[in-house]
Write a protein that binds this DNA or RNA. Sequence first.
DNA 1: TCAGTGACTGACC
DNA 2: GGGTCAGCCACTG
Length: 111
Amino acid sequence: MKPENKNFFEKVYEVAKCIPYGRVTSYGAIAKYLGTARSARMVGWAMNGAGSNEDVPAHRVVNKVGLLTGKHHFDGTSLMQQLLENEGIEVFENQIIDFQKYFWDPGKELD
DNA sequence: TCAGTGACTGACC
DNA sequence: GGGTCAGCCACTG
């Protein structure tokens, strides 16, 4: 069973699980790491299924500008923000402050 | 089977 | 600097 044989979702989950505490990444970064940079939407869609998987920190995945576009998929309205703030990440108006400072690139860090 | 939709992104104006 | 458009692929009706 090679990693390449894993489902697209499995890959997304695997990368998401590797996101360090207090760090965040973008859908595009994950998609690019998986070799499907054009399919960033699929990463987000995959995250939809990750919502039921506690092992996948979906709240650490946001869009390229640090905007919490997927917060509406969480139970509450500010759950995603609360989780991020709990990790020391500053969030204001659904957007991460100093996003680049917290950004975690799987292509460079995980490699 | 076809068409619409989506937790996105990059290019273009 | 920000608004708009097309492309990406899987799922749903």
